[in-house]
Design a binder for these strands. Structure first.
Lengths: 217, 217
DNA sequence: CCCCATCTCTGTACGGTGTACAGAGAGTTT
DNA sequence: AAACTCTCTGTACACCGTACAGAGATGGGG
């Protein structure tokens, strides 16, 4: 019944956990097979017992993060828009906690089972909102694109090797940078510098998501 | 007057061109300092005369691609929405021609001069559309997020080491994959498989962009 | 019970990576 | 002509992903 051979000392899960920790602590470049192996106390190639290659580990990280997002809110009884906003905000918070992971989400097709589940629940909500099935599907993709795009662009600005600074700090840094744009050649950008600095804020996230939802309804 | 030392045999531009060619022909992993150097016929570290490190080369690729997008359409006299759709479609076409580059665009803050120019012109159009300045700025970011997000997610599905197959083929491949989703556990996804297969199509791109524009106006 | 098939993990190795450092040679300035 | 400065080359280091061979543990079948 049981398989022969020694007991496994690891599991895919502890490897993913180690990889994620490495990603958070030291950035994307530090996520190496050797680094992961060292962290779990094993020879580098032992990793290949659990994953066919490094890319598979990265995919597993993505799937883990998608799965961490609870989808119960989507089934709640609040108005449908609020529910969607709630899970979008949850995703944003979760992913900004692992800034290096955002780009991973955009680098591979989202075809894992967790992604499928998220899509299905989104279709539920949109159907409930009264969208015909085809429009609901298109809308669901529009939402995913928008949410992931926002998060990725936002995460692209934070140094992934250290914990993300609070939002106010990130906005302030951008404001400083925008002070340098020459008003005579980019007058509108110069005038809007304050709101452009706040592109990487929850407020902007909510605003644009709200507009998209308005267009979808 | 002139600087001492031998004439430069290269320029940042020819390096970026070589890197882009490598990216198109052999995928992101093939874009190495050594590969670029070999392609332009120079020792690997000669590259460092023109760029401080590899990341700078990648950023320059991004800036080049943004700059390649002509912005004249934005100043035309067609209705403002049409103009925005036109440049979005142009960007999509351009970036899908370099599938490996899409993820680069999401990996670094878009702060090059070309990006600034694009933002400014977008603000022009949105002001003309009647948006108050602050909303125009927020809307401009929402558009960029959406367009880049769509493109990145779309590009994530194509093998960057070979020229992207035509859209019909990519959609067909997805349709095949969706045939495998179990209808009893994901009924809505199964029912919408056809439109989900077409997520990576110009039609979906136009649809969701249209909805967003509707919400912004 | 013993042996064998099987599985996990280790050691070693190969070809690749980014880039630091030192120095050769070309060209301009004095 | 000498001094200086800049570009490029050679060499080197530390690290990467991963292929390969084999040690040792484990369980099943005789």
């Amino acid at each position: 019944m049981g398989k022969p051979g020694p007991k496994r000392t690891l599991s895919g899960d502890v490897i993913v956990t180690a990889a994620l920790a490495l990603l958070d602590e030291r950035g994307a470049e530090a996520v190496s097979v050797r680094g992961i192996a060292a962290r779990v106390g094993v020879a580098p190639n032992a990793i290949y017992t659990y994953f066919p290659d490094k890319a598979a580990v990265l995919r597993a990280i993505v799937d883990r993060l998608i799965g961490e997002q609870g989808l119960e809110v989507l089934a709640g009884d609040r108005p449908w828009r609020e529910r969607i906003v709630a899970v979008a905000l949850g995703l944003r918070e979760n992913l900004l906690r692992h800034p290096g992971a955002a780009v991973l989400m955009m680098s591979a097709p989202m075809d894992g089972p967790r992604a499928l589940e998220l899509g299905e629940r989104l279709l539920d909500v949109l159907a409930e909102a009264g969208l015909p099935p085809d429009d609901a599907a298109r809308a669901s993709y529009a939402l995913i694109v928008h949410v992931l795009g926002s998060i990725a662009l936002e995460a692209a600005e934070v140094d992934p090797t250290k914990p993300a600074p609070p939002e106010a700090e990130r906005v302030a840094a951008r404001r400083l940078a925008f002070a340098a744009v020459p008003a005579e050649v980019f007058p509108r950008s110069a005038a809007a510098a304050d709101v452009m600095a706040a592109y990487v804020s929850e407020e902007q996230f909510r605003w644009s998501l709200g507009r998209l939802l308005g267009g979808l309804a």
